[in-house]
Nucleic acid binder design. Structure first.
Length: 363
DNA sequence: GTATGCTTTCGGC
DNA sequence: TTACGGCCGAAAGCATAC
């Protein structure tokens, strides 16, 4: 069997780059794209920052006030997210990427895997040329740069794409996998976050090479069979995951920050009704009935809690959605004591309906 | 014991 | 002195059925 050739294309600092595309004057200054919560004039979090802003220590998820502090005395620009604008640009770029792949898997608004094995006849040199062509087309048509990683599987392609950014192109041939991985820190592997990194460090494992040398039996004992095997295989650069076209989203959720922290049901219900209406509209437009309803509560101390309920039959009814949300909210308030800062609603476990007859069955 | 389904948390972007 | 979003999918954790 011919080796697979997989690409991961990642649009660089995407939201901020879209803003630079809209206003090229921004390119020479720090740019911070923000999600404003509306609570106070500047409360909210950083969504994305361009690389100039990152040099000052600005990072995704950071409170806006902190980014302002780091960028004081600079000519930084702070902008609110314009998701529709980014989505439109993303859609056009994803179409270009898909057009150059045998199989295509969009992971997020700014990231996609391409299986190009057939297209390049299993040859990595041809894949590198293809990736350069793709980068050139995206640059010419959209004025957007991306970073592409190429490897024998998704795992290697992903790590490769992360290793040179922005505007990177990194090829890891099958013979180079071991050398490429061995000196990298274990947290470069997907699924190895802060907690796992610390646990591995305690075992004397810092690099992926050290992880590869570690006894797989002990790895299983410590992390469980599934994770243990995954870590072992990943450390060797092994990954069989297919590039698989993704269909409809599996959940729809909306979340909002409350004007002020509260535990008052009536106040929270005003907000959840808006969220329910929004979700209902989105589900109707996509012809989806949902069988699972959940709430997400972020407390004053920023801890996250969820409650959910699976219905006996799928529904599309707004009234059902609102009723279940109210039940879940009452249940949650009963077993918590902190005030709620942000509240969200989520529906999932979809069934599609395409005609009026099936529609009736859900009401 | 294993498969399956549901609830909750985790963590990436 | 404090201050902090809005999504999504994956996986952990648990209960139940066979």
């Amino acid at each position: 069997m011919q080796p697979r050739v997989i690409m991961l294309a990642d649009l660089d600092y995407f939201f901020a780059q879209c803003e630079e595309k809209r206003d090229p004057d921004l390119k020479s200054k720090p740019v911070v794209v923000c999600v404003y919560s509306g609570r106070t004039v500047e409360s909210g979090a950083v969504s994305t920052a361009n690389y100039i802003a990152r040099e000052y220590g600005v990072k995704s998820g950071m409170p806006i006030f902190l980014a302002k502090k780091k960028l004081q005395n600079t000519n930084a620009t702070f902008l609110p997210v314009d998701h529709e604008f980014y989505k439109m640009i993303s859609n056009r770029i994803m179409a270009i990427l898909k057009d150059h792949a045998d199989r295509f898997e969009q992971v997020s608004i700014d990231e996609a895997y391409l299986d190009v094995s057939q297209k390049v006849n299993g040859e990595f040199e041809a894949a590198k040329q293809l990736a350069q062509d793709i980068k050139n087309i995206i640059e010419a048509q959209e004025r957007i740069t991306c970073s592409i990683g190429i490897g024998p599987n998704k795992l290697i392609a992903k790590i490769a794409s992360d290793s040179e950014k922005p505007d990177g192109l990194t090829v890891v041939r099958p013979t180079q996998v071991e050398g490429f991985l061995s000196s990298l820190s274990v947290d470069r592997l997907i699924g190895v976050g802060k907690k796992t990194t610390e646990r591995m460090k305690a075992l004397g494992i810092n690099t992926i090479g050290e992880l590869a040398m570690f006894d797989v039996v002990r790895l299983r004992e410590i992390f469980g069979k599934n994770l243990g095997d995954y870590f072992h295989n990943a450390s060797l650069g092994l990954d069989n995951e297919d590039v698989q076209e993704r269909g409809e989203a599996e959940s729809i959720s909306r979340i909002a920050t409350l004007r002020q922290d509260t535990r008052e049901l009536q106040i929270i219900l005003i907000k959840t009704k808006e969220l329910c209406a929004d979700i209902h509209f989105s589900a109707m437009r996509r012809k989806l009935a949902f069988r699972s309803v959940g709430i997400i509560a972020i407390m004053a101390d920023l801890t996250v809690h969820t409650r959910s309920k699976t219905l006996d039959t799928p529904t599309i009814e707004m009234a059902t959605l609102e009723t279940v949300v109210k039940e879940l909210l009452e249940r949650f308030l009963a077993d918590s004591s902190l005030e709620i800062r942000r509240i969200g609603v989520k529906v999932s476990a979809f069934e599609t309906w395409k005609d009026k007859k099936t529609l009736m069955e859900y009401t």
